[in-house]
Simulated scan of single mutants.
Amino acid sequence: MMIETDENFLVDAVGRRHARHAGPARIVSLVPSLTELVCDLGLTDQLVGRTGFCTHPREILKPIPKVGGTKDVNLVRLRELAPTHVIVNIDENRRECVEEIAEFVPHVIVTHPCAPEDNLAVFRLFGAIFGREAEAESLALDLQAALAEARAVGAGLPPERVLYLIWRDPWMSVARSTYISATLATVGWQSWPAEDVPRYPAFEWDAPWLGEVSRVFLSSEPYSFRDKHVAEVEVLAGRPAALIDGEMTSWYGSRAATGLRYLAALRRSLAGLE
């Protein structure tokens, strides 16, 4: 994602120009991982609304009003909160809903990080709009360090093809075009099948490409895979399988650095290096 800057404006993922906000804002975030980022930028006192899926940081968010889900926003409640800014994401929020929100909210900030490094631009965009440049730069430096660590692990081990499960009945995986796949690739895990669309393909266990997979991961979200599913998948796939924390692979924002370090440690552990 390219972010253009000048003295007065920043540009978001769809080319919309935003002024640097003077004074306290009234922010509603419709993206769970970016709600966490808002808090980590020191903007909790300006956060007036969130979705029911915005759960981190848990104790801080408890008193913040909910406005429905990421796909089914309660527009009446949102309007009552009188936000100055609403944060949305191209993949997580419905375009029709975002367009309706833009009719009564002055500033709708659209995001679309497609790989971990894209978070650097998101940090700086939010930091500049809301006057949190120092906090944003601190997060950027931490992410750059985590990226370097993860890439070093990936470069030091042979690439490994993995199947990343997100759903059961039907069984579903992730395409190469997803943020999850890009995050896994940072540590040398190539998600399979090697396709870009559909983004979340359903498959059967007799698919020919499964023979090229070395390992299977069962994500904790959106389907809540448990230990009991691991043995089932190992039989179906004929490959080693393990649970993986879905927040560490799919949440962008300030969680990205933590996620990369988690994946680097997991890659080393499964390779017998720690």
Results as ranks from 00 to 15, higher is better:
212 E>F: 00
76 V>G: 13
20 R>P: 05
96 E>F: 02
60 I>Y: 00
34 L>H: 09
172 M>K: 11
126 F>G: 12
28 V>Y: 05
6 D>F: 04
64 I>W: 02
44 T>V: 11
38 V>S: 05
187 V>S: 09
158 P>V: 08
274 E>W: 01
274 E>I: 06
244 I>R: 02
109 I>P: 06
190 Q>K: 08
133 E>I: 13
160 E>I: 02
86 V>I: 12
158 P>N: 08
17 R>A: 15
156 G>P: 03
212 E>Y: 00
166 I>W: 14
97 C>G: 06
222 P>H: 12
129 I>P: 01
158 P>T: 10
149 E>D: 14
185 A>K: 09
59 E>M: 04
241 A>V: 11
160 E>F: 00
118 D>T: 01
125 L>T: 03
88 V>D: 03
131 G>R: 10
46 Q>E: 15
105 V>H: 08
94 R>N: 15
146 A>N: 08
9 F>S: 05
128 A>D: 02
258 T>D: 12
100 E>V: 11
121 A>E: 11
191 S>D: 08
201 P>V: 10
241 A>N: 10
248 M>W: 07
44 T>D: 13
172 M>C: 11
158 P>Y: 11
124 R>W: 02
91 D>C: 13
50 R>L: 03
163 L>R: 09
177 S>M: 07
83 P>F: 07
37 L>H: 06
28 V>L: 12
9 F>P: 02
34 L>R: 03
61 L>Y: 00
72 D>Y: 10
166 I>N: 09
179 Y>K: 13
206 D>M: 00
259 G>Q: 07
144 Q>F: 02
141 L>G: 12
176 R>M: 05
174 V>K: 05
176 R>D: 12
142 D>L: 06
76 V>F: 14
7 E>W: 14
200 Y>V: 15
179 Y>G: 14
17 R>T: 14
89 N>R: 07
67 V>A: 14
53 F>E: 13
207 A>W: 01
51 T>M: 05
89 N>M: 08
23 G>K: 05
14 V>S: 03
108 V>E: 04
237 A>D: 13
249 T>A: 15
176 R>G: 06
232 E>C: 02
43 L>C: 09
86 V>P: 09
216 V>A: 15
24 P>G: 11
248 M>Q: 14
97 C>W: 00
244 I>M: 09
117 E>Y: 03
201 P>R: 07
84 T>D: 13
131 G>L: 07
24 P>Q: 09
37 L>C: 08
217 F>M: 10
110 V>Y: 02
104 F>H: 12
88 V>H: 02
57 P>M: 04
242 A>W: 00
107 H>W: 04
140 A>C: 09
102 A>W: 02
249 T>Y: 04
68 G>T: 10
53 F>H: 14
106 P>R: 06
251 W>T: 12
150 A>I: 07
